[in-house]
């Protein structure tokens, strides 16, 4: 089943590096997933996170406020 990944962040440097990490992991491991970058603050607040960037996988917030490592993202996606 295809996973839905959402990256919440208003476009700060940390949010960009999180996006790159997630994109790399998905393409390197041929994971079936769509990556959606949520930059609108109103949309972000619907998830009730207080620290960005945040990683949302299938509607569950898995990481907030920091940039994860590739291994970590891979584990979360499996």
């Amino acid at each position: 089943m295809s996973k839905v990944i959402k990256i919440l962040g208003t476009g700060c440097p940390k949010c960009k590096s999180m996006t790159n990490v997630v994109k790399d992991v998905v393409s390197e491991n041929n994971i079936d997933a769509t990556i959606d970058k949520v930059e609108d603050i109103m949309e972000i607040m619907k998830f009730n996170v207080m620290t960005t960037p945040a990683l949302v996988i299938d509607d569950v917030i898995t990481i907030k406020g920091r940039v994860p490592s590739k291994d970590e993202v891979l584990k979360l996606l499996n």
Binding site: T10, C15, I41, I44, M45, N48, M50, T52
Partner: peptide
């Protein structure tokens, strides 16, 4: 120090 987190934190607090 990250202005991008200030706004979400602000709303989180008020909320």
């Amino acid at each position: 120090f990250c202005s991008c987190s200030s706004v979400p934190l602000f709303i989180g607090f008020v909320q």
